[in-house]
Structures are given as C-alpha cells and as structure tokens.
Design a protein around this nucleic acid. Structure first.
Lengths: 211, 211
DNA sequence: ACACTCCTGTCACTCAGTGCCATCCTGTCA
DNA sequence: TGACAGGATGGCACTGAGTGACAGGAGTGT
C-alpha cells in the first residue's frame, strides 16, 4: 500500500506542478509554490522529485505511456495497425474525467516544451526512458536481446516518430482540433512506426522469424 | 572577429568542462572549478553557458555535427550510401591532433551520459537541435517545408538511429575497439537512415519527385 | 505501554545562476 | 597621442534549487 500511496502523491505533485507551469511558466514557478499547492513542505517535495522539471514527468508521459502499454499487449500474430485499431475502440469509454483532465495537462506540457527548454529536456528524457522499454518489447518480439544494436535502432526510430506525431497532435488539439479525429492519427502512429523500422516492428511474427 | 573569438572561448570552456566531468563526474564539478581552469571569472562563465551541463554541448555534438554537415553537402542525384562513402575518404587525413583530442572527449561525454542524467539530458537536447536542422535539409531535398509532419517524422527517425549508432560506436571505441573499423560503421549509418525513412531519405532524387 | 520504522518538517548549508554596477580593453575618430 | 564609445569582464549581493542532519509523529507488531 505504501508504494501505491507514494505513486499517488507523486501524481498529485505532478498535476499541481503542471498547472503552475502552464499558468506562469516553468522559470517563474518555485518549488515552494508547488509544495504549497499540494500541502507539503518543500523538503518533502524534493524527496519525491529530484528536480523541479522532473515534477512534470508523470503527467508528461501520459500520452506515450498508453502507446507503450499497448505495445506490450501486442500479440505476435497480429500486425501493429490491426492491434492498435482494436485497442483504440475501447479507449474513449474507459477514460475517466480525472484521466481526461490529466490528458489535457499532458498535452499542455508537451506543447509548452516547445518554448521552455527545461520542459523540453524533461520530455526528451521521458521519451528516452520509453525507448529503453520499447527496446525490450521489440527484443522479445524478435527473439533478440534488448541490447542488440538492431533492436535499439528500431526502438529509437519507433519512439522518434511517436514523439513527433505526439507533438503534432498536441499542437493540433490545443489549437482547437477535434479530439475524436485522434483515432485516425493513432493509425498514423502504427503506419509510421511500421515504416520507420523497415517493417520489422509492425509485421505479424510467425515462428522462428527474425529481422 | 568578435563572433569567432566568442566561439573559441565557448569551445575552450567546453573542453575543460568535459575533462572535469570525466575526471570527477558532473555533480562533483562546480562552476567555479570550470571557470578556474579556463582562467575566467565564474560570472563570465555563466554568460557563455546558461547551465553547467550545457558547457558540454559544443564537445558532445562533435560526432553528429560531422554527419549533419555531410548531409548538407549531399547532392540530390546521389544515394546517401554513395555520398557518405565518398565523403569519408577525405576525413581521416584532414583531422588535426586537436580535433582528434576533441573527438575523444566527445566520445567520453557520450558514454558518460549513460550514468549521468544531467549529461544525458544535454546529449538529447543536442540531438533534438540536430533533428530540427536535419528536418530543414530533408525538407529542401524533398521540396517540402521543414514543418511538414512527414518531413519531421523522417528527421526524427534519422536522428534517432544516428544517435543510437553513435552511442554504440562510442562504447566500442572506449572499450578499445579499432577506430579505423569506423569506416564501415558510417556505411551502417547511411543504411540505417535509409531504412528508417522508408527510402525517402537515402534514394537519389530526380526532378519533381517527392515522398 | 513499548520499541521499531517510515514519513514528514525544520534548520542550516552549498552551489547554480542572475542583476547591478564598476572597470577594463579595444577600436575609432580627431 | 589622446579622448571617447561600447562591448566584454569581474566583484558583489541576492534568489532559488537541492541536500544533510536531526527531531518529532503516525502506524504496527509485541
């Protein structure tokens, strides 16, 4: 229970930090302000997050987290396009209002990262982390090690396109685009990843197949 | 002249910072130490670099800078593999001892980035910058805008594989691998970029062609 | 009730980074 | 040669990020 509680505290901090970053900018926001909003002492804040910018990480990774979890559930015998298409049908209904609020914050952080170097760096670091996890997923799928150079290259290409498309969607959404058009964009994800890995990550995988 | 002098000061700072980071780690290195080595006041150091980690940026980008410049000189009618192969033949001879020392520092910073989050972040930010420049090169080549989503996706994929291969080469080199085996690895660059962009960045481009 | 442990707050401290002002160095014009 | 303008530098004081050490407080098992 302690672990779960810790996660909830971190998320709460992240939410308040994201709001403040959005309202005033990152530089103008102090650790003291974040701590005050959550109702914690500054000292405790720094025990939960090592740096000010990293306070935004849990929120900022929300969008891509979904993708990586989806990737984890990807059955070998199915193509990526097909898998994502199926997974997407359940998403809109299972999203609670609280999660939707977090999604909005995530999009805001991503677009704010365009102007705020500190946030950009946090966003890139988050994507870097996802790239490592993705490498292990791809490695499993291809029956290779996650340290294998080919596997890492495919992971880098996949997360690279994922990041850019995410930024693009984020900008569109904040500019007032229809969130329901997103469905088609997820298919673009799949297609772009498919292309960027030369078909290696995307095709169905049979027995004994490899890159 | 002022601009060139400024660049030289920045490079000198970057060299000394990189050495200190390598010797003692990033966290253990203070701004005061860096300034002292270069023979500058701390105040002036912060005028040249906004943060401590960014002091490493000029050095850390050395390896990829070469690639991006090569990309800039890439004639439309030639394939990427072919172009890189030709460019590489001149490189080993034109590298001065000073440049070679910088190359070594660059490799060290890249591998140090594995352990030091602050450096990792600087390295990712540098690659991010290169990605933007690459987008404009690719955009020109395809006759599209650098803001075009397809162009940005290709740039992300290309720089992603470039980054991973660079990290791989760096680790190999520091582990004692033969630097002259590097030649073949540059071909791997070209090939991986070619694949990651679905042939779009890599094929020769004729008139009126596009993605 | 007691010991044990984990979480939190308080205080003092170091170091990153900035704003302000004085100084110096350099190139230019008389 | 000397006076002058402007950018680069240094010194100083200050804010804010982040840490270490210590002291309570809350929950838990005995």
């Amino acid at each position: 229970m302690t672990d779960e509680r810790r996660e909830r505290v971190r998320l709460e901090i992240s939410r308040e930090a994201a709001k403040l970053f959005w309202e005033q900018g990152v530089m103008a926001t102090t650790g003291e302000q974040i701590a005050a909003r959550v109702g914690l002492s500054v000292r405790t804040l720094w025990r939960h997050f090592r740096t000010k910018e990293s306070c935004a990480e849990p929120i900022i990774t929300f969008g891509v987290d979904w993708f990586v979890e989806t990737l984890r559930r990807w059955p070998p015998e199915r193509s990526l396009e097909d898998h994502i298409d199926r997974e997407l049908r359940d998403v809109p209904r299972t999203r609670t209002p609280e999660q939707q609020a977090d999604d909005l914050l995530a999009v805001r952080m991503m677009t704010l990262a365009d102007r705020e170097p500190a946030l950009r760096s946090a966003w890139l670091m988050a994507c870097d982390q996802l790239e490592r996890e993705t490498a292990s997923v791809i490695g499993d799928r291809l029956g290779r090690s996650a340290r294998d150079i080919e596997v890492r290259i495919h992971a880098a290409a996949a997360i690279g396109v994922l990041r850019v498309i995410n930024e693009d969607i984020g900008a569109d959404l904040l500019a007032g685009a229809d969130p329901f058009a997103k469905g088609q964009l997820h298919i673009r994800f799949a297609h772009a990843v498919h292309t960027a890995t030369g078909g290696v990550v995307g095709d169905p995988v049979g027995e004994g197949q490899h890159a």
